[in-house]
Design a protein around this nucleic acid. Structure first.
Length: 312
DNA sequence: ATCCAGGCCATAA
DNA sequence: TTATGGCCTGGA
């Protein structure tokens, strides 16, 4: 199947997108800046306010920013962010062949893509995510954006939807604030990590662009050397913003899946889980993780909880 | 209400 | 190298 583009004024329709589930991709826990409005999803991507909707077997995206992108940049942004040039159906087939459990997870909810997010936003967002619920994460990020970010929504958008949207704040904008001001956005004890990171990036003490070009293991170490960043956050940044699909972030849900469904060992270490994932899923580990994560939290939630209870 | 969540750091063995 | 406790807050 080949894709067809229909480009209008600040709008774009893409027909024939294979293996693509917009709703699950946006709500499966990899991004925190999408809101459902009617049948559409509104989100801010790299300073551009997008309204995306899956309708009539096609993806429709509109630019509602104050300053609209030119058609080429708009198309580029959408393709890059959603990874539309990739043969995702092929990836799904490959994963299904490699593993029965992932095959079941893919059958349950196919078409989940890995978004290509902005590294800085991704890093701060996942620092906020530590020991936090998704709704809390989202509201903290909204408050950070309102306080430190720039307005992105156009007058027409604000009139139409009755709300204003803000871009994710730059490192220098956050470093102009303070630990206290970040804390009061709901960042809690993570505020010191965020403020420190903003200062470090602003002064050039950390360079995310440079890290994104390093070999996988080196990039992982570089990220983990940053105060407040452990293995989970490092791998999330690698996977969700740097296109490193061999990354395999292990949170409590993936941990349950690995311990109870794969390894049959309630006390398996994170190291063992990573080892297993690398051997089984190789270059597609990140996609396996995303399907397993969504499946575990929805279809297998109660079951995995029971297994965990019984193992105590 | 009481509990604990999509981790990390520091400390201790 | 692996195991604990503390961190803060708001939803269930």
């Amino acid at each position: 199947m080949t894709m067809q583009l229909e480009i209008g004024t600040n709008r774009l329709s893409i027909h024939g997108v294979d293996a693509f589930d917009l709703a699950n991709t946006l709500t499966c826990g990899q991004a925190f800046r999408w809101w459902r409005v009617g049948n559409a999803y509104h989100g801010v991507v790299k300073g551009t306010l997008l309204v995306a909707e899956w309708r009539d077997e096609s993806l429709h995206v509109e630019d509602h920013s104050v300053t609209k992108l030119c058609p080429d940049d708009f198309v580029g942004l959408v393709f890059d962010y959603f990874g539309l040039s990739d043969d995702h159906a092929q990836r799904e087939r490959s994963l299904c062949k490699r593993d029965r459990i992932v095959a079941e997870a893919i059958r349950y909810a196919p078409g989940i893509r890995i978004l290509r997010q902005d590294p800085w936003e991704c890093l701060i967002s996942f620092i906020i995510s530590a020991r936090n619920y998704i709704p809390s994460i989202m509201s903290t990020i909204v408050r950070l954006c309102e306080r430190f970010g720039e307005r992105v929504s156009s007058d027409e958008y604000e009139e139409l939807f009755g709300t204003r949207r803000y871009a994710f704040p730059s490192a220098s904008a956050l470093s102009d604030g303070s630990v206290e001001s970040i804390e009061s956005c709901g960042a809690s004890y993570r505020a010191k990590y965020i403020y420190g990171m903003a200062q470090l990036v602003t002064t050039g003490g950390a360079d995310l662009d440079l890290i994104s070009k390093q070999p996988y293991e080196e990039a992982r170490e570089s990220l983990m050397s940053l105060y407040g960043v452990g293995p989970k956050i490092a791998e999330c940044v690698l996977l969700y913003s740097m296109g490193r699909y061999e990354a395999f972030p292990i949170d409590t849900w993936i941990s349950r899946v690995m311990r109870f469904l794969y390894l049959g060992n309630p006390r398996a270490s994170v190291r063992e889980m990573h080892e297993f994932a690398r051997q089984r899923f190789e270059d597609l580990a990140g996609f396996a993780q995303q399907y397993l994560f969504h499946w575990a939290r929805t279809a297998k939630r109660a079951y995995l909880r029971t297994l965990e209870q019984n193992s105590r």
